[in-house]
Structure formats: structure tokens, C-alpha cells
Design a protein around this nucleic acid. Structure first.
Lengths: 338, 338
DNA sequence: CTAGCAATGGATAACGTTTTCCGTTACGCT
DNA sequence: AGCGTAACGGAAAACGTTATCCATTGCTAG
């Protein structure tokens, strides 16, 4: 790979000048048109590719955003990471993706590795698992980093002192449940979640609140998982019992699809026999016409990326202020499975 | 962030020694136990984090693997990237993920950006779209890089002079079709693909071959897309026509799920009314008991990662030999939708 | 007794950039 | 004429590592 020095030599200018022409600061320090042209020509003939590594070392900041996703195969997080990547690219940033398999230990090691790579910031996609062994340890480490100036943003409820961009999970579930109630359903079951997973627990809270208000009997088969398989298993359990509910609200689209899968193969009609709803509005449920609360997943990711890419970038704020942004659930339920 | 110099100072040793203790080469150049201990202690108190950036600059090779995926939301590629990430981590590598949206232009820009980051190698997940404007240009650029020593591996049929690890798509589709035939189905339709997409076209070839051999009438609704939505639309078209086939073979699981979705909502019974099969064996189809050819997607990714992480690493091969690895379709179809 | 070697530690030159600090012009103004 | 000031261009010091060469010691083999 051609270096600036070689370019400079070929164009008979100094490396400083070559740098100014090829990478940026030609405004701060003017370079004549002639020189510019010859430098660019030299760069072309030699096939110059700037070394992002050297730039990062010099500037103490690589144009990389680290992403730690709870489960990369879950469309919920996949959408977020896509949002991050798209927005990051607009700022010339690139994303390093790490999958944590919902394991705080893995999150911790990935967090470290990402920091070693001098990333501009780190985004956590996915919420806390309270009570899990590594959770507190991770939080301590993250908080230390945040205080040291590392830009961290959590796209979910997290026990970090970092910037957070979170959806109001309780409100979302509340609205969805209300919607199902408004359709005339009374017996509405709730399925899904993982013990200690804040986001999931908040959704159960929202569901309970709505049911309580309507004086309808709540039935929570929660904490059964967040995957399609877990949804399927829970649905099997439900259909094995004496009486099917009028409707099933699921903690996310994946679980809902699993429920749908079982109900369908068991011969039930949706929504005639039972209504099913999910949360997320991911591509996964779209093809089934799943009723779901559409969440701005891609936009959330974009927000996170933009925050990292811009905060303290050209501005002169040394310590980017951590803030907490709550996205209300503004979307209305949509779909045909209700 | 603490640097080696600070550590060295605190431990009253030279940076060289600190480097030797903290990062690696303590075997090549021995360091006494006492010194080791004091350096490590210093590193601990100062909270040392090695700068991957500086290491990369010095060693002319970052421990990063670049991944360019055709469509990150398609489980087929998501599985591959997961395989890459898992295996890469074992070697202390990290992956930069870039989504190309099946667009050669985007692949090209991402390829450039990745190279700027001095990645150890680049993996393409997804095959060529022949005839597309940017394809030839991309190939030229990639080949140039390969010749210059960049390690590139394509996890799909590609017109690159790079290492390729490809599944025998024709054989896979052939086997699957034969299996469906062996079940007694005669009228078997094929759905899915994108014009110019080599992998998809190969699958059609395999299907045709099997049907021809069995003297069964082939019906290809190919080139309708690779997504769930496209599968659904194609299925709609199919059910609108006079007569439903006995079975439907789809180009991948996503399309198959889309087909399933339509058939189900339209009131058909699977597999009583019509059998459905996909290719890939991704998590997407699992919950529906979709009949599918399980492909070693994760393993493929792992192979690619291992190749990049190891080739020319400690060995002294300067130019890693490009090779072409064909994975036969060894798996048998599994699932209940047939 | 001494050449030679293993063990250990240090200095220092890179790696490819960016950026600050200094020249040198040339020009416009008093 | 004198001088401030843009407009340019270059030299060189970092950024944090690693690796190559040297220096010192304490041995052991001849």
C-alpha cells in the first residue's frame, strides 16, 4: 500500500502537504491548485489508500463504533444494528459488531476488546439481566470507562451511568393490551420474557396495568424466553390447558411468531379462534400480518450512531454529557392477527 | 488510558520490557519472574489497556476481519457472520460488519473502507449479481487487492481470484428435489431467486436436472426474490392459478417461510394440501418444522475466519495461496412440511 | 584463564499520520 | 521605504507499539 511519503516523493512535495491535500485540512491550511493537482495525480497513479490505523493512532480516535448486541439473530437487534451501521456510514464511520449471547460475561470481554480498538464509542443493544453474576461487574467497568470519557450508549434500560436511549416498554405493552381489550377480548394471556431482563419485565408491568384497569383477569406465562422456540413451547402449554384465551400478547415478535407457528400447526384459526400480538414491528412478523407495536428500531440505532459520531467531534465539548432519552410509544398497533 | 510508557515508568523498567511482559513475546525474549510481577502490578494499578491501534500500525496488520454481507437481516447470512465472529474471537480477532444490501456499488465502497482499516482479511457473504453495473468494477478492484496480498474469501460463487468456500448449490437443490420426488410428488414447483444471482441460478439448475431425470414437469417461478415477502407474493400467484402443485421447493428458507405464511392464511394444510421445502436450515424455518436442506452456514463462516486469522500468521508464507473449497451437500433434508 | 553462550534488560528506530511551529514570498497599505 | 499579513510550503515531533540491535552479567567448556 502506498503511503503518504511515497506520494509526497513522487509529487516532490512534503508529506505535510500531501496529507493536507489528501485528507482534509486543506481549508485550515491552504494549498495551491497546482500542488493539489500533482499530489492527487501521484496518489492516483500509486493507488493511495489512507491508513485508518495511523490516523486513529495520531488522532487518538478511530472512526469505529463498537456494537454489542444481545442476540444478533433476533431481528429486533438486527434492525438496531442496521440502523447504527447506516447512520454511521454517513459520518464515515464503520461498526464493529460483537454478539454477546445475552451473557454479561461475554459483554464484558467484548467491551474490553472494543476499547482496545480505540473505538469512538460503544453501543449496547439489549437490556440488563439483573441478578446475573456478571451484571454488576460489567456495570462497574462500563461506568469507569464512561467517567474516563468513553462514549457509551445503551439502547435499552441499563444500570449504566451512560447515555441511554430507551423505549418506554411498559407504555408500549400497556397500549397494546388496551388495544386488544378494545377489540372486545377479555381473557388475554401474556407470553415471554427472561428472568431479570428489565425490558421484558417492564412489558409485563404494562400488560398487568392495562388488565387491572379493565378489571380483566391477567394470565402471565412470562419468563419463558424471547425466542421463537420459547414462544412455541409456551403456546403448546397454553393449548394443553383447559381453555384457550381470547388473545395472546407476546413480549416480542419472535415469541409471537413461535406462538403463531404452534397455533397454526395445531389447526387453530387466527384471529378467529385466538388473536395474537407481538411487540417490535420487525420484519420477522410482517409476512404473517402479525399484529404488533411498531418500534423505531432502526431510528434508535441511528440516533445512537449519530450521538457517538458527532458528540465532541468537531465541537469542543471534552466530556460529552450523558443523557437519558425516553422514546414514548407513539405507534399504533397494526396487523391482521387480531 | 494508560500507556506502556507509564507502566514502564511506574515499574522502573523500560518500555521494551513492559511490552514483552504484557503483550506476548516473553518466550522469545525471557523476562525474570520478579520483573514480570512488578510490571503486571503496575499495569493493574494503572488499568492498562493495550492500544490495538498502535499494535496494528506497528505490525502492519490489525486483528480485524472485515465482513461484507449481502443482507444482514437474512438469517442465511446472519448465521454466517455469527460463525465468523465466533471463530474470529478464538484467535483474538474482531469483526467489522458491513451490510451491502445486495448492491455491488455498496460492496465496493465498503470494501475500500475496510481496507483503509488495515483489516487482516475480508469475507464476502453472498454471491455475485452478474450483469449488475458495478459487478465487474468490484471484481477488478478485489482482484487487484488479492494480487497485492490482501486476504479475501468469498463464501459464495464469485467472480473473484480470491479464496472461495462455496456450497454446491446445484447439488443441494438436486438432492432436495429428488427427496421430494421420492415422497411421491410429481408436480413440484420452484420458487425464488434474483436475476443474475449465481447461487440462486445454480439451485434452479439442480432442480431442473432432478425434474428432468424423473421426467416430471418443471415449473419455475424463479427470480422473484429471496425474501419472505417475495415468497409470499409468489405463493399468491401460484394459488391464483388453476391448479396447485404437489410440492414447492424454494430457493431458501426465507422464501419458504413466506410461502408458508400465504398458504396458511389462505387456509391450506401443510403438508396435506401441498408440501413446502426450503434450503439453508436457518433458525427462521425451524419453528415451523420447515423441510429444508441444512447447510453448514456457521461452519462456513468459521472456516473463513480461521483462514484469515491463521494464513501467514506465524507461518512465513508471504502470499497466502488462494484456493477454492467446494462443500458438497452432505446433509439430508429434515422437517415436517413435506 | 578465556572465549562463548544463555539469560536478562535497555535504547531506539520504525509504522503512517496529523499538526504545530517556522520560513519564505508577495502583496497592500501607510 | 517600511511593515503587517495573508498564502503557501516544509521540518519535525508526536501517537503507542514492537522488534532489532547492544550491553551486561554469570556461567561453563576447553
Amino acid at each position: 500500500m502506498a503511503t503518504l511519503r511515497e506520494i509526497a516523493e513522487l509529487a516532490s512535495v512534503s508529506v505535510a502537504t500531501a496529507s493536507r491535500v489528501l485528507n482534509g485540512s486543506a481549508e485550515k491550511h491552504p494549498v495551491s491548485q497546482d500542488v493539489r493537482a500533482s499530489v492527487r495525480a501521484a496518489a492516483d497513479t500509486l493507488g493511495y489508500t489512507p491508513s485508518a490505523t495511523a490516523q486513529a493512532l495520531k488522532q487518538q480516535r478511530s472512526k469505529i463504533i463498537g456494537v454489542i448486541a444481545s442476540d444478533i439473530l433476533d431481528p429486533y437487534f438486527a434492525e438496531m444494528t442496521r440502523g447504527i451501521e447506516i447512520e454511521a456510514a454517513k459520518f464515515g464511520y464503520v461498526t464493529i459488531l460483537a454478539n454477546a449471547n445475552r451473557d454479561p460475561e461475554q459483554e464484558r470481554t467484548k467491551f474490553r476488546v472494543l476499547r482496545e480498538h480505540q473505538v469512538s464509542g460503544i453501543v449496547f443493544c439489549g437490556s440488563d439481566i439483573e441478578g446475573s453474576p456478571g451484571t454488576a461487574q460489567l456495570a462497574r467497568e462500563v461506568n469507569l470507562a464512561v467517567r474516563a470519557g468513553t462514549r457509551v450508549v445503551a439502547l435499552a434500560p441499563r444500570g449504566f451511568d451512560s447515555t441511554k436511549i430507551v423505549i418506554d416498554n411498559a407504555a408500549t405493552a400497556y397500549e397494546l393490551t388496551q388495544y386488544m381489550l378494545s377489540l372486545g377480548h377479555r381473557k388475554i394471556a401474556f407470553i415471554g420474557g427472561i428472568p431479570g431482563l428489565s425490558a421484558a419485565e417492564q412489558r409485563i408491568v404494562g400488560y398487568r396495568d392495562a388488565m387491572f384497569e379493565a378489571q380483566a383477569p391477567a394470565q402471565v406465562l412470562g419468563l419463558t424466553g424471547m425466542s421463537q422456540e420459547s414462544g412455541k413451547r409456551a403456546a403448546e402449554e397454553l393449548t394443553a390447558s383447559t381453555q384457550l384465551p381470547d388473545a395472546i400478547v407476546c413480549t416480542n415478535d419472535e415469541v409471537a411468531v413461535g406462538v403463531l407457528a404452534h397455533l397454526w400447526t395445531a389447526g387453530y384459526k387466527i384471529p378467529e379462534d385466538v388473536s395474537v400480538a407481538g411487540i417490535g414491528g420487525t420484519r420477522g412478523g410482517a409476512v404473517f400480518g402479525l399484529t404488533t407495536m411498531t418500534l423505531p428500531l432502526v431510528e434508535l440505532g441511528g440516533l445512537a450512531a449519530r450521538y457517538i459520531a458527532t458528540a465532541g467531534g468537531s465541537s469542543d465539548v471534552p466530556a460529552p454529557p450523558s443523557f437519558e432519552l425516553h422514546i414514548g410509544s407513539t405507534s399504533a398497533p397494526r396487523g391482521q392477527s387480531d
